[in-house]
Design a protein around this nucleic acid. Sequence first.
DNA 1: TTAAATCTATACCGATCTGTATCGTTAGTC
DNA 2: GACTAACGATACAGATCGGTATAGATTTAA
Lengths: 184, 184
Amino acid sequence: MKRAEKKGHLVDVAIEMFNRYGYHAVGVDSIIAEAGVAKTTLYRHFETKELLIAAALQKMDEQFRVDLRTFSADASTDPLGQLFASFDFLESWFSAATFYGCPFIKAAGEYNDTNQIFQEVILHKRLIIAYFEELIRAAGLANPEQLAEEINLLHEGAIALAQVTRDASVAQKAKAVARKILIP
Amino acid sequence: MKRAEKKGHLVDVAIEMFNRYGYHAVGVDSIIAEAGVAKTTLYRHFETKELLIAAALQKMDEQFRVDLRTFSADASTDPLGQLFASFDFLESWFSAATFYGCPFIKAAGEYNDTNQIFQEVILHKRLIIAYFEELIRAAGLANPEQLAEEINLLHEGAIALAQVTRDASVAQKAKAVARKILIP
DNA sequence: TTAAATCTATACCGATCTGTATCGTTAGTC
DNA sequence: GACTAACGATACAGATCGGTATAGATTTAA
């Protein structure tokens, strides 16, 4: 592995473990052991564990939004179709073996007072809503702000329910509600 | 304080701290210090920390469902009105200073592999859905199972969003969506 | 009043936590 | 090929983790 890839690999390993066990539950010793890296190396790239968590959230945010856009674009050329496809994206996410609930809500639940981490969560959610609003405007629907928030509401609900029920079909149920909202 | 009340007080203190900081983040030493109780006392009532968490979840489940039923009954005599009132209940919860997101989703995020805790979460969510279904049946609406799941979807979404945005008005937005679903 | 149960206080256990220090080795760059 | 920066390995620091042991004080129930 090249030097430049080490930092990225470290974050990838951290992401996987944080998602599975939670942020406090995973110690840096476990991460370096899993990544096959010395402790000194980790702390050269990230001053503190919280900064590693922040970096993990940033990477997940980017990955999630890119993957969502790609998935929707592949599913439909129509903006409204892309908005509906976002629920299919959720379904595929829920079906993955690596799904353990929303890593951002999880982070907000464990670090609601540390600004560094909480701000990353807020930023991510804002960007997701912005994407929904973008699609709704492109579709020419009325009240794009309000509708985007409502779609986001359904997304968050589906993610939380899927985490508990471990049933990927909640994504389609949320999609059905979205249909009622968007196509009156 | 009477002896019998000590266990209850211990759970109350634990609930407050778990909600605020998370489950892993709060150690038993912090709990006993805040409760003004010796460590031996805690471990006489609860064999392990996980059992204390399970007890906290049980108490929160009962409190939440009783409070929800009471709030809805006070708000309306009509089952459909009570169902809508459940979103007002959420709003008052979100407005409280002690709101730090859903303690059950938080627990599921930190202990998704320990059955003891995760099962409490599943049970709570099932009982909430059952209550929604009960109201919908009383209202004489069609597809009560499906509608109950959709209302629950909106509840979960509102809770998750309120945790991040710290804006209690998302409850009313969820209520507006519920209106679109229930009154076509 | 007496005996059993529950309490407080404290010290302790081994493990783990985040983070640092040291040092020899490996790799990329000029 | 030499310089330099990043690496691995290890030991260590001080704090905290969940949980136990012990002993004395206090309360409850017979």
